[in-house]
Design a protein around this nucleic acid. Structure first.
Lengths: 345, 345
DNA sequence: CTGAAAGCGCTAACAC
DNA sequence: GTGTTAGCGCTTTCAG
């Protein structure tokens, strides 16, 4: 049963016109209660459900929002960060009555070929864009403002709406925490400076050190690309210069960094402290469990959906910006318990 | 620019009727080459692209396919398996000109509430369903065949189309390989028997052992739930009974198992061999690198899209079944190099 | 080869 | 309150 029934059919079955049925379906006030019952009964019995396409064609709204993950995330996709983000966005979409369409562009060509179709086909009410880079060509294309848009992560252009975690504040938190634990040679495995997150975490980290009268020794800094392997390599480079603590700008890179440290025979936290960023489940399972700056990934995704819907409804206007708070989760890798017991500073 | 232009507009600009423009857009043969050029030029210049909604309304096809990931994958989502699968499906969709809609149902209520809307709204041409369980209520609902459907993973009902990896053959391969390396007390960290993959890998494993005259000691078997943690716990239980080799039914669980083994002071592969299943990148980065049965996750996803499109086009009919071949990747964890050198059997 | 006309299923004035 | 009438932008006969 179901399917292929039209308003007209229901109308005939209930002995009314299609307009009346439409009114009932859309819960308009001006319908005789008795008639409404009759129509509702027919709908129930037949399993009728309105054709979304036809409805959208006239209303101009589809309820579909697109999630765009651009080129080269191929590599990034290994990061559980994206799984979480997608979950948050998906579940918020369901809650809000939206349908979520997913566009993963594996490379620039795919991006160039598909993107116009995506945005101009008229099916999408709005777009959420993630994993943008500095000078992202995709973002440039979008900024013309053809369609409501929310970015997850701070974009490097003005005027665009976005949600972001407090990368700067979080990184500063990591720095001051390590300093307060008594460490002095504090290094950094940074996120790529081709991303705003990388830049914000770097700046926040340096600011945090400055607050405690410390500076970042260039020898103690190496950047990764968010991958586990890059964290491993970066840490190997830094180790040669003997830091007493290192802030690794993502959990996934921290796992790699930990591997490098272990291979070098250095103990965490006894010989060296570590603080990372993200607060993914993996940070809790690592050996030792990581002290990390937790960002609310799922919530940020959900917030992006809500913001986008406000933008679509015209209840908000660009640039609509929201910074999600982060939180320092103290576990073993920073050695803070031990340090505090020994009486730092 | 772009947007809001209609066939009529283009027609006016090119001095032809909307029908002709439609013919050009849809690449029909009967159009004067000269006129076609003229129209194409206008389309190019204006950035016109057809309204998908209107087109779908008359054609009855939307080009949208749904990817449904049902309840409780919440936990499963940690497994990079899903990221890969989604990537494969997404990229095949792009290639085939489909739009992919993602439906992640976090719990049964969400599933029950949303599913009817999903399938009956008329927007989807077909559906891909993953992570089904035994006696999956969702599958029962779907089997009525309202809409073309392809399952990723073997379902426990008849008549449905699906793609699956050769779980049975792969597990048998793992068993015979370990046996051929000279191990006798071969244990199993199984996948949940509430999934067909769990059952198939179990059966295949037992069959493989049987081929070499071995049996599975019940003390040497413990099942996990695909999570890293469950692999850790299961391995701890098995370790007490001193296996000389263990087949872990997923890479992610194997990482956990490896953690348990390390904590117990047991060396892999010197004291105990390990073979796992999946062939994810993580299996290569672990210490030691895992010998694993690699399944083509991305390809399976892509194949699902292709099959679904054939089903939609009526070029194939249910049940359309395809089993993807798997491959044993020999690395360090099985100790096979050492064993072979020492002369097995 | 090309235009006119009908209609996909629905919503939204507009009359009655 | 309820029916009638236009379209939304497109494809598709059907004439010419």
């Amino acid at each position: 049963m179901a399917e292929n029934l039209t308003l007209e059919d229901i109308g005939r079955l209930a002995g009314v016109s299609r307009s009346t049925v439409s009114r009932v379906v859309n819960d308009k006030s001006n319908v005789n209660p008795e008639v409404r019952e009759r129509v509702l009964a027919v709908i129930e019995r037949t399993g009728y459900s309105p054709n979304v396409l036809a409805r959208s064609l006239v209303s101009g709204r589809t309820g579909v929002i697109g999630l765009v993950i651009p080129s080269r995330v191929h590599a990034l996709f290994e990061d559980p960060y994206f799984s979480r983000l997608i979950q948050g966005i998906s579940s918020a979409s369901n809650r809000a009555g939206n349908t979520l369409s997913l566009f993963i562009f594996q490379n620039e060509e795919e991006e160039a070929a598909l993107y116009p179709r995506v945005v101009t086909s008229g099916v999408l009410d709005g777009l959420i864009l993630t994993a943008t880079r500095m000078a992202d060509p995709l973002l440039a294309r979008m900024a013309v403002g053809e369609i409501p848009l929310v970015i997850v992560g701070r974009p490097d252009v003005e005027g665009v709406s976005y949600v972001d975690a407090d990368n700067r504040g979080g990184a500063a938190l990591a720095a001051t925490h390590l300093a307060d634990c008594g460490y002095h040679r504090i290094g950094l495995v940074g996120a790529p400076v081709s991303t705003t997150a990388g830049i914000d975490r770097l700046n926040g980290f340096v600011e945090g050190l400055a607050l405690r009268g410390l500076t970042l020794d260039p020898d103690l800094r190496a950047d990764g690309d968010f991958s586990e392997r890059s964290g491993y390599v970066a840490m190997q480079r830094i180790l040669a210069h003997q830091p007493d603590a290192v802030f690794v700008a993502s959990d996934t890179m921290a796992i790699g960094a930990l591997r490098a440290v272990r291979e070098a025979g250095v103990d965490v936290p006894d010989d060296m402290a570590l603080v990372s960023f993200d607060g993914l489940p993996s940070s809790e399972r690592s050996v030792p469990p990581l002290t990390t700056v937790k960002q609310p990934v799922t919530d940020a995704g959900a917030r992006a959906v809500e913001m986008l819907n406000e933008l679509i409804a015209g209840e908000a206007k660009d640039p609509y910006i929201e910074i999600m708070p982060v939180e320092l989760i103290v576990r073993q890798s920073c050695g803070s318990a031990r340090q505090l017991a020994a009486g730092p500073q």
